[in-house]
Design a protein around this nucleic acid. Structure first.
Length: 274
DNA sequence: ACGGCCTCCTGACGGC
DNA sequence: TGCCGTCAGGAGGCCG
């Protein structure tokens, strides 16, 4: 499941191959993604230059003169740069083909992903319903312990849900929420409003650390995002709790506990996390 | 404003 | 071998 590090790595991986490229054709084989793929993309973008690739939260932004193609990978999506002539396989839903003969191809088995057009400049994008209420980027200076502390006052929800709420901070998915809470020694079940400023400082640092480590590791797998051989692999970062329910805590050896918080699997150590 | 649940979808997996 | 039920999971939408 693409988490922020995979999305970031995808952006970095594709950017050198598509920035400055001229769109020849946009092929939509299946428009039924999370939302219908914007109609008329081919007519709108043929002949236009892809100016820049960037990212906001887990949305990948392809900048054009008149607006943005916004891509979300959902749970199972991947983007690769390949020859346009390469036969499309099952779940290859959208191609953005360039005059160079290369294309950007979206594969998404579960179709929780999205491809849509937002007209206008950056200000217009910011005003978009999906972007106007987003919290800061987790790796930015704007995201700090003070912010988490202040915004969590009087909140009764579990801290794990709190840090996964994109209105508070973007890009913290299930895997890294679990890992950061383990690293910070905080129970995922603890009420967000009952955590001290001191512990939020620590949690903030842990979130930044796990994400930065994963992104750094992603840099070594950049080649996976280019070419037709297989699908991009996600990072096999050493995980301390996620997916390890029933196994021994790497710190104290006690058996890790699994609970469901907000329909999501959460694994933690009852001894190390309070 | 907040919290909790629902929904989209398919591959993987377990049971028989 | 095959069929069927079950489940995960990002995150917006909706309801109370």
């Amino acid at each position: 499941m693409p988490e922020l590090p995979e999305v970031e790595t995808t952006c970095c991986g594709i950017a050198p191959h598509v920035e400055g490229a001229c769109v020849q054709e946009v092929k939509v084989r299946n428009a039924k993604l999370r939302w219908p793929v914007t109609r008329g993309l081919n007519a709108k973008l043929s002949g236009e230059t892809l100016l820049r690739v960037s990212r906001r939260a887990k949305y990948i932004l392809l900048h054009f003169e008149q607006g943005y193609i916004v891509i979300h990978l959902g749970m199972s999506g991947s983007l690769r740069v390949m020859d346009s002539a390469e036969t499309a396989e099952k779940h290859d839903h959208v191609d953005i083909c360039f005059a160079s003969g290369k294309c950007l191809r979206l594969n998404d088995p579960r179709r929780f992903g999205a491809v849509f057009w937002v007209k206008g400049d950056e200000q217009q994008l910011q005003k978009h319903k999906l972007f106007n209420a987003l919290g800061p980027e987790p790796l930015s200076d704007e995201f700090d312990g003070k912010l988490l502390y202040q915004r969590s006052r009087n909140r009764k929800s579990a801290v794990k849900n709190f840090i996964m709420d994109g209105h508070i901070v973007v890009g913290v998915g299930n895997i890294y929420a679990n890992e950061a809470l383990f690293m910070a020694g905080i129970s995922p079940l603890r009420a967000a409003g009952k955590i001290s400023a001191f512990r939020y400082e620590r949690l903030t640092e842990c979130i930044k650390q796990v994400l930065a480590a994963a992104i750094k590791q992603g840099g070594t797998t950049l080649r996976d995002f280019v070419g037709g051989d297989g699908k991009p692999g996600y990072f096999k970062q050493e995980l301390h709790v996620y997916g390890r329910a029933g196994q021994a805590c790497t710190r104290c050896k006690q058996t890790l506990t699994e609970v469901r918080i907000g329909q999501r699997s959460s694994v933690y150590c009852k001894a190390c996390q309070r």
